[in-house]
């Protein structure tokens, strides 16, 4: 089960506290309305207030139940239907391999290949140098991706230089062109970040995947500025997990038939409780 907006659950402790206060007072406050406090003997105020509120108690219980159910509905629980609907533009990942003069791209390739394991989403390959370049469009043909990955190097770039942000922007344009709903761009740097302008605001899940510790440390600040997860060779599970979680949430909340939405049921239960608030009060 997924909670699409879990922060609404914060209303529940407030309701619990309210319920405790109401119960402690016998279902009411201990003060009298208006300026009755000035007229009634202090010793009598408490008992009188409790008796006056006893009738109101029949209202606060359904109101409390309705509020709790409404807060749960707002948290938007959905039950995963076990697999996103088969839309080819639902999910995609772009691997951005940075090339730099005199840097062996082998470690980057090996790390990228690990993200091409069976079950990987449609994946595209972009080369980043002085600009971003399409190498392979979004595909599940791992053999084709592997072939092109194997020959990517600084030597085959039409324009040399280092502009990682341009590569990242190109990758996100690739996802946008394909109409990908849940996209992830994985940038594999060749060297520590050069000083350059920040990339445009993130339109996908961003990851900076550094192949060694020194690179990991060097990219920490830039990855933070990019709004990207900084990952290393041991974090590939988390990189995959980010995309899977985003896909599950999208399937649950944005796609008809993607999941069983519990919100209408909770709203229905809240409405049933709410009806009790309309009961007439009998004449004394």
């Amino acid at each position: 089960m997924i909670l699409a907006s879990p922060f609404w659950l914060l209303a529940l402790p407030a309701l619990a506290a309210g319920a405790w206060l109401l119960r402690r007072g016998g279902g009411l406050a201990t003060t009298l309305p208006g300026q009755w406090d000035r007229l009634i003997d202090p010793a009598l105020r408490g008992p009188l207030a409790r008796r006056l509120g006893a009738a109101g108690g029949a209202r606060w219980r359904p109101a409390l139940a309705a509020a709790a159910l409404t807060a749960l509905a707002l948290a938007h629980p959905v039950i995963d239907a076990g697999g996103a609907p088969a839309h080819p533009d639902l999910v995609g990942r772009v691997l951005v391999i940075e090339t730099a003069k005199g840097v062996d791209p082998g470690p980057q390739r090996r790390l990228a290949e690990r993200l091409l394991a069976p079950g990987a989403p449609p994946t595209a390959l972009v080369a980043a140098a002085g600009e971003g370049y399409d190498v392979v469009p979004l595909t599940e043909d791992r053999a084709h991706l592997g072939r092109y990955l194997a020959v990517l190097s600084d030597a085959v770039m039409p324009e040399h230089g280092r502009r990682p942000a341009a590569g990242l922007a190109h990758a996100e344009a690739t996802l946008a062109r394909a109409g990908t709903v849940v996209g992830q761009t994985v940038f594999l740097p060749a060297a520590p970040p050069p000083p350059e302008a920040a990339p445009p605001a993130a339109r996908s899940l961003r990851v900076v995947l550094a192949h060694d510790d020194a690179l990991h440390r060097a990219w920490r600040e830039t990855a933070g500025a990019w709004g990207a997860r900084l990952a290393g060779p041991d974090d590939l599970g988390a990189v995959r997990g980010d995309l899977e979680a985003a896909l599950a949430e999208e399937a649950a909340t944005g796609l008809p038939g993607g999941a069983t939405d519990l919100r209408p049921w909770l709203a229905g239960a809240a409405a049933a409780c709410w009806l009790a608030l309309f009961r007439r009060r009998a004449e004394a």
Binding site: T31, W60, A270
Partner: peptide, 30 residues
């Protein structure tokens, strides 16, 4: 198929606020 975006949250939030207000009133036996 088209993506759909649930827009019921503002209405549920309104109901929640109303419920809180009723509870507040009931606090004083209103």
């Amino acid at each position: 198929e088209r993506r759909v975006f649930d827009r019921s949250a503002p209405f549920l939030a309104t109901a929640l606020v109303a419920a809180f207000a009723i509870l507040w009133r009931e606090r004083g036996g209103g």
